[in-house]
Amino acid sequence: MYMAEDNYNSVLNNTPGQNVTSVIGNETTPTTEYILIAIKSTAMILIMLGAIFGNILVVTAVIKFERLRSAITNYFIVSLAFADFLVSIMVMPFSASIEISGKWMFGRTMCDVFNSNDVLFSTASILHLCCISMDRYIAIIHPFKYQSKMTHFRVYVMIAVTWISSILISYIPIQSHWYTTSDTLQEMADRPDECLFVVNRAYAVVSSSISFWIPCTIMVFVYLKIYMEARRQEKQIKQSGFHVKELSPSEQTNLTDDQTEKRNERKRMRREHKAAKTLGIIMGAFVFCFLPFFSWYLVTSLCGDACPNPQVLSSAVFWLGYFNSCLNPIIYAYFNRDFRSAFRKLLNLTKLLGNSYSDHSGVVLTAGNFENRDHSVQVQSKNSCRNGNTKSDL
């Protein structure tokens, strides 16, 4: 994310060299101030630990289980989790230190690195989500062309472009000091205990557009198209008079090849729709977390001191954005069956729930033995014939 000048107005408007921010250990600090610092510190630590643990869990699950590795979409999810993990270890601790101590303690060079990382990882996150939305668009709108369009090479190129674009909008202008004014540079030289990130209007418009507004607009449009297509396909299936329902073993044996193909297609569509719904929730969570920040960032950068900006507001929008880094793993665990199963095994929850975890479609998924998507349909059909259960979790 980006820092704006208003974050530090309370300091800049006072005598040079005097830090008026409440410091831990000051005997004049009221008891309520200690309580607020304790609450803020606890909340920030929980967000950091949640982001670290959750995103490591996502990456480990995809590396360990073949079923997750076989899905092209999960390549983007791993890269996104990596970006969120870097936020939690390379951005959040520095921001938390500013919130608690009221000053910057790591020198001018690290200040530029911190600001660059903040912009880099927030931009990478939303560009990854934009890639994911395009992947789901092709899977839903053009399912028969998906394998030819979303090849491994193209996915690698998209991920590389995402990271390179994020670097170009962050490290190059910040390290070159193109993003700010000469007055701000002098201000930073005079105040080494302050890490300011005061942007000029041109950089505010360009950076926020590339990092948020344009990708967010694309994603909203794409997910609207996905939603309309999903509804159309569901209506088409209902009109055809064929529905996925519980069948006895004898009924499944009597299915014709055409009926079996229709059932498999129906299951595929439901699986894709559930994946699109999950990723739509991820995108919605991201917009919820970052829309307040980017709105605040653009408005305060364009109108300057004319816009009132309480310190509590700037802190709230910053950490609401950081909170997104630990939300995605929670969404995966709750809405995505494959990730839910993998997380259970990695956390050894299967010992509490039984030796094996069976998903709701009759496929027993064991650790390290996930089948690919096509083979899982065959296994599901065989298992269903044996136990008479074809219920799908999707």
Rank of each mutant, 00 (worst) to 15 (best):
M44L: 15
E229Q: 09
T217E: 01
Y223M: 03
I126P: 02
Q259R: 06
L224Q: 05
K391E: 10
A160V: 00
Y203F: 11
M1D: 03
F323R: 02
F370H: 13
N389L: 08
T253K: 13
T123N: 07
N7A: 02
P329F: 04
I164P: 00
T350M: 11
M188E: 12
F290Y: 12
Q233G: 07
P30F: 10
S148E: 11
T184E: 04
A160F: 04
R69F: 05
T390E: 15
G388F: 14
E272S: 12
I164Q: 00
S358T: 02
S10T: 08
N26F: 09
K238P: 00
S170L: 00
D84I: 02
D183Q: 08
Q380Y: 15
M228G: 03
F82S: 15
K345Y: 15
D6Y: 05
N264I: 10
R337N: 11
M150G: 07
E187H: 09
Y34M: 10
L347Q: 14
T123V: 06
A306L: 15
M105P: 00
K391S: 08
T256F: 03
F221G: 00
L279N: 07
F212S: 03
M134A: 14
L346S: 00
T256Q: 10
F153W: 11
C326P: 05
D190R: 01
R337P: 04
S95F: 03
T181H: 02
T151Y: 06
S250K: 15
G17H: 07
P308F: 06
V377F: 13
C326V: 10
S381T: 15
S116Y: 12
I72E: 10
R263I: 12
W104K: 02
